[in-house]
Each structure stands twice: as structure tokens, then as C-alpha cells.
Computed example of a mutant assay.
Amino acid sequence: MRNVSPDTITQAFADYAAKAEDARTKEVLCSLAKHLHAFVKETQLTHAEWMAGLMALTRAGEITTPERNEFILFSDLFGVSALVDMVNTPKGATNCSNLGPFHQRGAPELADGGDLWKDQPGEPMVVTGRVLDAETGEGIAGATLDLWQNADNGLYAVQDAAQPAKNYHALLRCAPDGTFAFSTTRPKSYNVPYDGPAGDMLRALGRDAWRPAHLHVIAEAAGYRPLVTELFPEGDPYLDSDAVFGVREDLVVPLGTLANGETPTHLAARDRLPERVLHAPLLIRMARA
């Protein structure tokens, strides 16, 4: 099309895609082009601004590694990750929330009642809960939980060479009725990485880099949709200003305390816990596939 103009370029892009083999791919990419073109026209983007954006993406590629993905961080900080989570959460199920950049595959298996704390620094915490069918409220047999969190210094294992590999990561198989329990430490609030182009964006906008403390969970069970979510202990000062927009009301977990004798008897660390210990009760509702 030799007479392309600001008014016709979006349709030209769609016309060029006429031979696309997959209708959904065509729909998504044509919609993306439509909104990108509208953004350029609405903001009257300058050459310098356009080039600054390209250079930011170039830097993001240069610093991205298997342990840190700057593109995921951009998606998180723009609220895109959160919005994708929200529009894909089935009705009645626990809300999806950010996967984040620090998940490690191949987490070690942890028996129900197992110990992630291992006498490390931090405030010991007992987590108990149940994985439920979102429709019936019944426990889901065979559910597994991929768990990970940061240590007391606010760092995940992949960020901290002083921590053992896959520290505070575990794959836990729930009891036949969907219940589970384990010991850990209370996770800590932390700053998202802000030494790269995503951090430059935060500074340009005068935004905070803080995330409230949370426990990551991927819940899976045969016949159910996998659930990627985060659970946030109540009382954190950043619950209403999460840099990546990950908090939902149903993901905020009440924190209480239990006397040692009130903790589940199969907890491996029971004899080492203090007289009173923090307690986080979780309910995880999964939607059928």
C-alpha cells in the first residue's frame, strides 16, 4: 500500500495478515497493532521517545537471564501480568496472581507436615490449609503445591549465593482430603529489582518498588485448571501499594498464633517451634478443567 497514512495504517496491517493460518494469532496481533498505532497517535510520540523505548527493550534483553527476566518485570510493573491473571481467574476459584521472576522448577519434595524453616533466621510460622473444589467445596485428593518464598533477608535463593540451592522452595503433596501443613518463616516485604530499565521507569514515574510479603503457590490436581497465585499475610504496610498490582482481597491471609500444643501433630518441626507460633490458615479453591 503506497498511500498509507495515519488513518489507514492499522487497516493496512490487518490486510497484510489476511493469509494468517491461525485466526486467534491474527486477532491478537492485529489488536496489538491497533492499540500501538492508537498510542502513537494519541501521544504524538517523538522520534527520541520512540528510540528511548527501543533502547529500554534492548537493555532488558541484555540483562535477562534464567534467574531474572526484565520483560516479565516490565509486564508486572505495567499491570499487564495482573490483568491477564484477573481476566483468566475462573468464577469461584481463588484469584490468580503473579508468577514472578524467581520461580525455580524442580523444587525438592516436601512431605505433608514438612519443614521449610530449618532453624533459619526469621519468625517461625505454621501454615495450614486445604485445597478445595471451587464448585462443591470438597477437598481435592492428589493436589500438589509448588511453594516458594523469600528468606528473612528479603532475598530469594536465586538472588543470594549464601542460601542453599532452592532454599524455601518445595513441592508438597496434600493429604487425601486436600489438607496440608508445613512450617516456614514469615516472608518479608522486598523491592523488585530496580537497577535496570524497569527501575528507570519506576523512578521516572515517582513510583515505589516495594512488594508486600507473600507466599507463592502453584496448585495442581488432575481434572483441574492449574492455579498460580500468591498469598499475602495481613498487616503488611505495602498491601495497598504493591508495585506489581498482585494483591486481591481473597489473597490476604489472616495471621494468628497457636500454642505449640495446638499445632498439627505431624509437623516435623513441632518440637523445635516456640511456645507460641505464628499461624497462617489457607484455603485454595481450584476450578475444574
Results as ranks from 00 to 15, higher is better:
43 T>I: 10
145 L>E: 00
210 W>I: 12
130 R>E: 14
100 G>V: 01
169 H>W: 04
40 V>C: 14
53 G>Q: 01
78 F>M: 12
279 H>Y: 05
115 D>N: 10
141 A>W: 03
12 A>P: 14
197 P>A: 12
60 A>Q: 12
270 R>I: 02
249 E>P: 07
266 H>N: 15
35 H>T: 13
95 N>A: 13
25 T>H: 14
108 P>K: 03
130 R>G: 07
181 A>N: 08
209 A>D: 11
28 V>A: 14
288 R>L: 00
20 A>G: 03
74 F>R: 06
41 K>H: 11
72 I>A: 11
223 G>P: 03
175 A>L: 01
54 L>W: 13
273 L>F: 01
194 Y>L: 13
267 L>P: 09
42 E>A: 10
268 A>Q: 11
71 F>H: 08
56 A>H: 09
151 A>M: 07
87 V>E: 10
277 V>D: 00
8 T>N: 07
237 P>H: 07
245 F>I: 15
184 T>C: 03
90 P>D: 02
207 R>P: 02
88 N>I: 05
289 A>W: 10
125 M>N: 04
270 R>T: 06
267 L>N: 03
230 E>Y: 14
283 L>F: 05
289 A>S: 15
237 P>S: 00
189 S>Y: 13
101 P>K: 09
60 A>E: 12
182 F>G: 00
64 T>N: 02
209 A>Q: 04
265 T>L: 15
263 T>A: 12
146 D>W: 04
247 V>E: 01
120 Q>G: 15
29 L>F: 09
104 Q>W: 06
260 N>H: 13
34 K>Q: 09
239 L>P: 01
40 V>N: 10
142 G>S: 00
241 S>F: 10
237 P>Q: 04
154 G>Y: 06
37 H>K: 11
252 V>R: 08
119 D>E: 15
146 D>Q: 01
124 P>E: 09
116 L>C: 03
5 S>V: 01
